[in-house]
Design a protein around this nucleic acid. Structure first.
Length: 546
DNA sequence: ATAGGGTTAG
């Protein structure tokens, strides 16, 4: 065996053995001590041999002669000299399995941290398991670190597994960490997973939760319209020792309002007003006002507004904005403006949302000139229109066929580097130009939006396809369709149906086959799977009037 | 760390 070893090993062997015997008596094996010069030297050697070995098996062979000096301290030092965490893990495992090294606690932690830092959480958790099975103690902060590292890396399933593991070990991760997990799961639209997870642990009492945990899950369930489960958590909070607070109630009231159960939301407000279990605040009232506005019940909305002022809860800018928008939507611009003036008097300055709602209201009521006056007033107040504002004004200008003004606004928008333009701002202009027969200008606008890195959506493409067809530019229409599919924008039955019926009308049914090939992604030039979101048969069956 | 607002077209 030794005859295959590199020459430097032969030279140093005697000295190494000497060191080993000397250390035996000194080393306790319980923790790292500062490596002395010789340990450091051996560690350098070990890490070098390991890194230069072509395989773990080869490394095992080459390190075998050193087995008597492979102390936990040497390995710990060697590990820190290997920059690649997976290589380090190789040495870590090899020394543990092949040479029986009992790693220091610190070596386990070091290894786990390295793996986490490189995003190798799977491996980190395996090392954690070994650490546990080797009987090392695990303190809370270290477990919190591991859980948080998984969360920050977005490895939510690993985090879930780790929560289970931690509670098996008798450690309950902090509610703060749990709440982060719940929030992330909900963000990733995994509300059900979050709810099942929380429910499981509540039943097993294997988790410490707080009011936030309930609020987060109730909000998530409301978001996916699972009000039954949301109410279940709400009603059971007390039995776990957590009473719903104002935020809990606000979340639930908002959830009910958004599910068109405003009256039920109102009942919750009335209940807390009566039993005083918590104090409703501006958000509570505002959510309810929003609920009533959404269903056009402005009397009821204003009633709540009056009530909150009577009780001494000051409406916020958001409260005013919601009411102003509500009045605009039902066509009551006088009330909208009077609230706007009230804002000014009450020292609650209007913001860009206020103006967007007012402008939208005027536009809906065919008072475009009043809308443009407000646009100017808004600029006078040095409030910058944002994408929403542009969208509203451009939309209505196009509807009134004031395309030149709309295009001017698009130019202004294009000059605003701070705004991310969205296809639906451009679409009405492209639509207007197509309807006016100016397909070439429509294409220019398309170019402008593409220059701003704004991706056309299926509406943009459909508008352009129909526009070209109407001008008899069938081949261009097909080319646009091809481009749409190539870009990964899925046509729907309206897109395909419109194009097909145009081709039929134009008397070139032969082209339909080509379109269907493009749509199905079986076109030889294409390599994009699953393009069409509706079955082709369905698309064919839909007739579209043009 | 959790709660309330404005655009939605072919």
């Amino acid at each position: 065996m030794f005859s295959h070893a590199p020459p430097y090993l032969l030279v140093t062997r005697r000295h190494l053995l000497f060191r080993y015997h000397r250390r035996l008596s000194a080393e306790t094996g319980s923790g790292p001590s500062r490596p002395d010069r010789v340990d450091l030297w051996i560690a350098k050697l070990v890490s070098t041999i390991f890194r230069l070995s072509p395989s773990p098996a080869a490394a095992a062979d080459r390190l075998a002669p050193l087995r008597q000096v492979l102390s936990p301290s040497v390995i710990f030092t060697a590990l820190r000299r290997i920059p690649d965490p997976l290589s380090a893990l190789g040495l870590f495992n090899l020394s543990r399995t092949a040479f029986g090294v009992v790693h220091f606690d610190a070596a386990f932690r070091f290894m786990i941290c390295c793996l986490c830092r490189s995003g190798l959480h799977d491996d980190a958790l395996k090392v954690f398991d070994e650490m546990v099975s080797d009987g090392h103690s695990n303190d809370g902060p270290f477990m919190e670190f591991l859980a948080n590292s998984c969360l920050e890396a977005g490895k939510l399933d690993l985090a879930i597994a780790f929560f289970h593991k931690a509670s098996h070990l008798g450690y309950f991760l902090q509610p703060y960490t749990l709440n982060k997990l719940l929030t992330l799961l909900i963000e990733k639209n995994r509300v059900n997973d979050a709810s099942v997870f929380l429910r499981q642990h509540l039943d097993l009492q294997s988790l410490s939760v707080d009011t936030f945990s309930f609020n987060i899950i109730i909000k998530g369930l409301c978001k996916v319209s699972d009000l039954d489960t949301a109410l279940k958590f709400f009603n059971q909070m007390g039995s776990y020792g957590f009473l719903p607070d104002t935020v809990t109630h606000n979340i639930l009231i908002d959830g009910l309002c958004k599910a068109d159960q405003v009256d039920r939301g109102h009942k919750i407000l009335q209940k807390i007003q009566l039993d005083g279990s918590c104090v409703p605040n501006v958000v509570t009232y505002t959510s309810l006002i929003h609920g009533y506005c959404k269903i056009g019940k402005m009397k009821e909305a204003y009633g709540i507004f009056d009530e909150m002022i009577g009780i001494g809860v000051r409406p916020s800018r958001i409260t005013y904005n919601i009411l102003i928008d509500g009045y605009g939507k039902v066509g009551d611009m006088l009330s909208a403006i009077s609230l706007y003036e009230r804002m000014l008097i009450c020292g609650c300055p209007p913001d860009i949302v206020t103006f967007t709602s007012l402008i939208d209201g005027y536009c809906r009521n065919e008072q475009l000139d009043d809308a443009m006056k407000l646009w100017n007033e808004m600029n006078r107040r040095e409030l910058k229109p944002n994408a929403h504002t542009f969208s509203v004004v451009i939309h209505y200008l196009c509807r009134k066929n004031r395309l030149a003004e709309a295009r001017n606004l698009l130019k202004t928008l294009n000059g605003r580097r701070d705004l991310l333009p969205h296809a639906f701002i451009y679409n009405p202009v492209i639509d207007g130009l197509c309807k006016a027969g100016d397909v070439d200008q429509a294409n220019v606008v398309l170019l402008e939006m593409e220059e701003r890195q704004c991706m056309p959506d299926k509406f943009t493409y459909t508008i352009l396809i129909i526009g070209h067809c109407k001008k008899g530019r069938m081949l261009e229409a097909i080319a646009i369709f091809q481009k749409m599919v190539n870009s990964g924008c899925a046509p729907d039955s309206i897109t395909v149906g419109s194009l097909v019926s145009c081709l039929l009308k134009a008397g070139i049914p032969n082209e339909i086959n080509k379109v269907m090939l493009i749509a199905s992604g079986r076109n030889s030039k294409l390599d994009i799977p699953r393009i069409v979101e509706t079955p082709l048969g369905k698309s064919m069956g839909i007739s579209v009037a043009i």
